[in-house]
Write a protein that binds this DNA or RNA. Structure first.
Lengths: 206, 206
DNA sequence: AAAATAAGTGAGTAATCACTCATTTAGATA
DNA sequence: TATCTAAATGAGTGATTACTCACTTATTTT
């Protein structure tokens, strides 16, 4: 009778919220938004199912709540690198920083890209939280490199799209085909991607 | 009483199968695998729900059936380009061909990448149907370029991963943020990606 | 200590969904 | 035309699920 007693630990509202968000990210990223059940999230968070709906009105609100904080957080780190002056050096720092962030939050990024296809809220969060600010940060660097004659005068958006593709796919590929992913460290990957993106596959002297 | 009469057109078994597969791809790619309902697929295919299960035992079998034919088809086109000799020229042809295929089957590729996260069957289909053969085709070209001294001796898998990232993301990005996608033609995009991948962003003479 | 407030609970609910099967229909065959 | 067969149908079913709400438990206030 007293078998299935939940031990009710005392936690602040904020701590409970975090427990739920943490569990939600795990369950969402393992099963997708539709494949995840609120019952399973509650189980993993160590709360009753009803508790979830005391903190988040709907399942969808829980999804956006999972994505938003990390999206915002992802911007803060950037400003520190602004001081670097050489366009090439700036890029290497920036790339390494981005890859680390994506490595640490691989679950979240995979979830974000999968669900962006189906939920306009997610697309808008990506646009306003990542793409927009990211462009604002990197466009001046790009223009400066062209003005200095260091970069080719390539169109900005397509170039950034290629860059994002390389960076994003690093994380996705590693998850989908771990046995095909030889690199041990993020640094190795960053060096390799930077070399390709800046100087290409073809040898300079050929 | 005779209001909701379905007009039963005479079709071969294969035609019905194709109708269902076509509708399934549409509904799956709009809502994701879990978000799609067999009722909606039946509606869009113009058949009764039960008919679906006469052609496919389960919903999941329908998913794999949607993905497989296109995966196989995607390989056939490749062999034709083998004749090209210059490594650079081969790459441009190959890339253009891949981008066209992805443009034509954008729904399918987006679905495939989203669902690969959650279904090992999809991952395996991707691996055996796309990645494996793709590697078998392009590895000799890559090695030859290095042997000729045209390419840098970069590691193969990470280089291909970057290439795939650029190519895949072209389609995904265009879907997620159409207003940010300036290119009108696949050719333009192919030229741009080829330039970046082969020669990089930095000017050769700088 | 009693009362009031806040947070948590989990059985219950209505809706949804993949899948079944007894029946109907269309076309081939005799 | 009558009979047979395979394909198609769609109402029905059991399982699942997001969400509710009457109630319990813990904390704060009086």
């Amino acid at each position: 009778m007293s078998e299935n007693q939940r031990v009710r630990t005392k936690k602040t509202v904020e701590e409970r919220r975090q427990d739920i968000l943490e569990a939600a990210l795990k369950v969402f990223s393992e099963n997708g938004y539709k494949g995840a059940t609120t019952a399973e999230i509650a189980r993993q968070a160590g709360v009753a199912e009803g508790t979830i709906f005391r903190h988040f009105a709907t399942k969808k609100e829980l999804l956006t709540a999972v994505l938003e904080p990390k999206i915002v957080e992802s911007l803060i780190v950037l400003d520190q690198e602004k001081r670097e002056s050489s366009p090439e050096e700036f890029f290497r720092c920036f790339l390494k920083n981005r890859l680390e962030l994506m490595q640490e939050n691989a679950d979240l990024f995979r979830l974000m890209f999968a669900e962006a296809q189906y939920h306009s809220e997610v697309r808008e969060a990506m646009f306003h939280g990542i793409l927009g600010p990211g462009i604002g940060l990197i466009k001046p660097w790009f223009d400066k490199g062209i003005a200095q004659g260091v970069f080719k005068p390539l169109p900005f958006i397509p170039t950034m799209r290629s860059f994002m593709g390389m960076a994003m796919f690093y994380g996705v590929f590693g998850f989908l085909f771990p046995n095909l992913s030889p690199e041990k460290t993020v640094d190795e990957a960053a060096d390799h991607i930077a070399e390709l993106f800046l100087h290409g596959l073809v040898r300079a002297d050929s």
